[in-house]
């Protein structure tokens, strides 16, 4: 049997106070998953379905690596699970893999937990013999993740922090623009991070007409091409991130609309998060 109903957490690693890595036993997914694809999970029987991008997989041991930021009730709950616990549902790999064939020189720009998705892409490109420049941006030193992993997977790594507490101070578009102006001829820029960051990366690369791929992570329910909740406007047309993406041509994506759609359940999420926190506090007390 290649399939399982017991999605056991084989390894848990705290990357920073708000970001956790887990290796989850899901052999069928591990056998197929490629950089850029995602999975959908439900923590428990009444849980919400949430998409998380695959950060890596180990085909031999049948595990899939996920890296998530604790942003809402579901991720908070997921983070409470430990090695040996099982995730209720885990399905994938979904979406289309990032297209990497033929790339010779690429700049990968990751922002925050988006670096978790950028890392396997950098790794794959590096293995393919592509020259990889990586720019990873974080709010501050405490939130830096995967530094060693990125070092290994790239020819050049620049870490940026908003407050200058680590690496260089400033936003990721500053070194990106410098590199382009210094004559680095990238075949492509791949940007993964908050929508606002990807929007500005695109604004940086567009004047130089450097192909820029962005990874969209909109709200999803089923993730298999049924509900239509993950739609976004790309090149004036409605696309569905779950089956048409999650990668899209950054020049064509309507980021402003995506940002507004992303905020649809903000109040609900905040409430659910607070409630879950309170529940957790009570349990602790």
């Amino acid at each position: 049997m290649r399939w399982t109903d017991m999605f056991e957490i084989k390894r848990k690693r705290i990357l920073n106070p708000t970001v956790t890595l887990m290796d989850v036993y899901a052999p069928a997914v591990a056998a197929k998953a490629q950089p850029g694809q995602f999975i959908i999970l439900r923590v428990d029987e009444l849980g919400e379905r949430i998409p998380l991008t695959v950060a890596g997989c180990d085909k031999d041991n049948g595990t899939v690596t996920i890296i998530f930021q604790i942003v809402g009730a579901t991720t908070l709950h997921l983070n409470e699970l430990n090695e040996g616990d099982c995730i209720h549902d885990f399905v994938g790999p979904l979406g289309r893999p990032t297209e990497l064939d033929g790339l010779k020189k690429v700049c990968i720009v990751g922002g925050g937990v988006g670096c978790a998705i950028a890392w396997p892409i950098a790794k794959k490109l590096h293995e393919m013999g592509c020259e990889v420049h990586a720019i990873a941006g974080f709010r501050n030193k405490d939130l830096v993740i995967l530094e060693d992993e990125f070092k290994e997977a790239s020819d050049k790594l620049i870490i940026m922090t908003d407050d200058g507490s680590y690496g260089r101070q400033g936003v990721v578009t500053v070194p990106l623009k410098e590199a382009i102006e210094n004559g680095e001829n990238y075949d492509e820029v791949i940007a993964i991070g908050p929508l606002i960051m990807m929007k500005f990366v695109v604004a940086t690369t567009k004047p130089y007409n450097i192909k820029t791929t962005v990874s969209m992570n909109p709200i999803m329910v089923d993730g298999t091409g049924m509900c239509g909740g993950c739609r976004l406007t790309v090149g004036g047309k409605t696309c569905f991130a779950c089956v048409d993406g999650p990668d899209f041509d950054g020049f064509e994506v309507d980021f402003d609309e995506a940002m507004k759609r992303g905020a649809m359940y903000k109040d609900f999420e905040k409430h659910a998060y607070d409630e879950h926190c309170n529940l957790f506090k009570k349990e602790v007390e």
């Binding site: 329910v221 089923d222 091409g225 049924m226 509900c227 909740g229 409605t238 649809m264």
Partner: peptide
């Protein structure tokens, strides 16, 4: 499969659902 839309302005505003999403 995927829900059809009308291709009219405003279909990606907040508060616009496909029946599939709403019912799911």
């Amino acid at each position: 499969g995927l829900p059809k839309f009308m291709n009219i302005p405003g279909e990606n505003l907040r508060g616009v659902y496909s029946a599939n999403e709403f019912l799911t």
